[in-house]
Amino acid sequence: MKHPLPARPTHIGVLRLSALGDVCNLVPTVRALQRQWPDARITWIIGKGEHSLLAGLSGVEFVVYDKSTGLAGMRQLWRQLADQRFDVLLHMQQALRASVLSLGLKADVRVGFDRQRAKDRQYWFTQRQIEPRPRAHVLETFMDFARLLGVEDCTLDWQLPIPDAARDEAQRLTQGAGYVLISPCANPRLRNFRNWSAEGYAAVVEHVWCQYGLKTVMTGGGSTQEREMGQRIRNLCQSVAVIDAIGGTSLKGLLALIDGAQAVIAPDSGPVHMANALNTPVVGLYATTNPDRAAPYLWREHVVNRYPDAVREYLNEDPSDVGWGRRVRHPDAMSLIHAEDVIDMLDRLLEPAANPSDLERESPDEA
C-alpha cells in the first residue's frame, strides 16, 4: 500500500541544494504550492550560493547547508532542525549526499523522483515517488512534485526578489546604457565542455554594437578560465563597447543586470534560467546537453540547438536512441554552433514582437 500523502499540509520541506539554474526552475513549483495552501509553512534546505541568489523569496524559510562542510555541516543542520517535523519532505536533489542529509530530517512522508529519473538510487530514501514522465523538461519534473500532492493550478510564476542595492550595483556598471548580456562560461568543472568560442562571442558583440548600438556586458565568476575567456573576447572587440563584469558582481547584482538586459546569450548554465525566470529574452547555446530537457523554458524556441548534430558526430548514435539526460562530453561539440546561428536568433529576439509574455503564466506541458 502506498504511503498516504497529506491532504492539507501545514509544513512542507523542500530539499534542493543546487544548482543555480535548477533552483530557478524549482521556484514555480514553490509558488504553485503557495497558491494551493497559502497558510502552509515552506522550509527550503538549500546550498549556500543558491541561497544568495534566492534570498528574500516571499513566503519561504531557507535553511542553508554549506556543501563544503561535509558531514559536520550535516550534523549541524540536523541539530538546527531537530524540533521540526515536516508533513511532507520533497526530496528534489538526485545526489547521494542530499539523500544522506535527508536521513536526519523528520518527515511523515518523503517524496522523491520516479525510478526512471532518480539517480544514485534516490528511491531507497523516499516513501513515495512522482509519476513517471518520459522525456520531461527539468521544470516539468519539479512541477510533478506539486501535482503528486494534488496541486491543480500549475501556472508559472517566479517573482524573484531583486533588492535596491543590487539594482544600484547594475546601474554603476552600465551607467544607464542599453546592453545585451553575455555569460560566456558555464561552471568550470571536469569534462564540462559547454563553453562556446571567444571568436563566436566577439562576432556577436560586434553585431549588436554595429546593428543596434547596444553595449555588451560580460558576466561570470572569478575563475581563471572565465577571466581568460573575457580577456580573449575583449582583445577581439577592441573597437566596440564591452563592459567586463566577470568576477565583479554579486549574484543579486547579476540578477539585476539580467533584468535590465535587452537579451542574454549564454551556454547551458545558471544565467539562461535566471533570464527565463525574469522573462528576459535569452538565446541558449546548446550542443553538449539536450535543450528539450534543460533549455530556458519560456524561450525554448530561441535556443541554438546543435545537440542532435553533436550526438551524431561525437557519439555516433541517433539522437532518438540516446538516453534523455545523455551529455556529449567532447571538447569540440560546441564548435558546431556558428556565429551566424546565434546572430540570427538574437535578431529575432530583438524584434519587438518576439516576447513570450503570453506564455509567462501558462502551465508547463503535461503531455
Rank of each mutant, 00 (worst) to 15 (best):
D144F: 00
A353D: 15
A287D: 02
I246Q: 01
A367L: 14
V60Y: 10
I343G: 12
M92H: 08
S18I: 05
R115P: 07
I162C: 02
G221D: 03
V304Q: 04
L298Q: 10
A261N: 08
A241M: 00
P364T: 11
V240C: 04
D244V: 02
K106I: 02
G13S: 03
F113K: 02
A256N: 06
R31C: 08
I12C: 02
A295D: 07
S58P: 10
E317L: 15
V311K: 06
S223P: 01
A186I: 02
D83W: 07
V217E: 02
A275R: 01
V100H: 07
R31S: 07
G178H: 13
L149P: 06
G260A: 13
A165I: 05
L160V: 05
L26M: 12
W209Y: 15
P9V: 08
P331R: 08
P271S: 05
R41T: 14
G104K: 08
Y212K: 10
G73H: 05
L346I: 11
E226Q: 00
I337L: 12
Q238D: 02
R35D: 06
P352K: 09
E351Y: 04
E360Y: 10
A295C: 10
L350S: 03
G13I: 04
L89Q: 01
S320A: 15
L173F: 05
R135Q: 14
L26D: 01
G222Y: 00
L173K: 10
I182A: 14
G49T: 14
P356R: 02
R147S: 12
D114W: 04
I337H: 05
